[in-house]
Design a protein around this nucleic acid. Sequence first.
DNA 1: CAATCGTTTGACGTTAACGTCAAGCCGTGG
DNA 2: CCACGGCTTGACGTTAACGTCAAACGATTG
Lengths: 147, 147
Amino acid sequence: MNRNAPEPRDLFAIADLAKEFGISTRAIRFYESKGLLQPERVGGTRIFRRRDRARLILILRGKRLGFSLRDISDYLSLYDAHSQTAQVELLVDKVEERLALLEAQKRDLETTIAELREIAQLAHERLAQETARPAGRNGVQAPGPAG
Amino acid sequence: MNRNAPEPRDLFAIADLAKEFGISTRAIRFYESKGLLQPERVGGTRIFRRRDRARLILILRGKRLGFSLRDISDYLSLYDAHSQTAQVELLVDKVEERLALLEAQKRDLETTIAELREIAQLAHERLAQETARPAGRNGVQAPGPAG
DNA sequence: CAATCGTTTGACGTTAACGTCAAGCCGTGG
DNA sequence: CCACGGCTTGACGTTAACGTCAAACGATTG
């Protein structure tokens, strides 16, 4: 009867998570040392549960967003202890700040892209000129104009 | 007659640029050491022209975009020597890669924001409960329900 | 029993992008 | 002349986020 239930595991070794998320075990241990993860221990060996796995996902997303581990640590505490309202509001502010930053980045990036495209365009035109009026020997057989 | 022409300067001391862009002179020297700037020298002292200033602007924008100085260096070379077409295309690719990354970041961020807002919402509701049914002594006078 | 695997802690190494001295040169003003 | 402010070049320090050993422990397996 249990054939269609995936029944997700609840216990993971450090290497399981490392492999799953494409990070090193060293990184995971590092996150723990910073208090971002609190796996249980069975005689020294770390045992991770779904809760830790979920936190790890949040950590990695935070990193993709450019948060420091310190920031992520604060952020995680929100999930834990549905903590102080004041804390929550501070964090929300912080995140909104970063959103503004990201949007500024996007504008910068669009400018940059446009400039690069222009440069590329000029370069292509130049190249076309060079091709039309070859400046020296080359081993490539270029087909002449059709007609 | 020259009253309406701002006539932009063409010579800058290192401290001028540092102040103008809100960075340290150390940073500017560092950029030079990495080949991103090539100011002239007058007996040892660096003299920057508008060209260097323009490059500095590009450098800072690159940094805002999260490029490394190494990447920015490549990027700058495009402006210099309307360089090899192949180089240009490589760079354009690189920038487009980063654009994709930024857009992924934006999605992540929007998810995060939404989650935080939800947490904040819950926290507010809780707070409202606590206020309505105070759990102990407090010095604040809460107005009773109207009617 | 010995080898092998996966794990642990600890300690040192690494990279980027500067910060922070230290020591010295140079031109000006009192 | 001497102090002073601004500039220079080293050279070492710093922070974040791990990487890279090394040495040792515990379970499994031939």
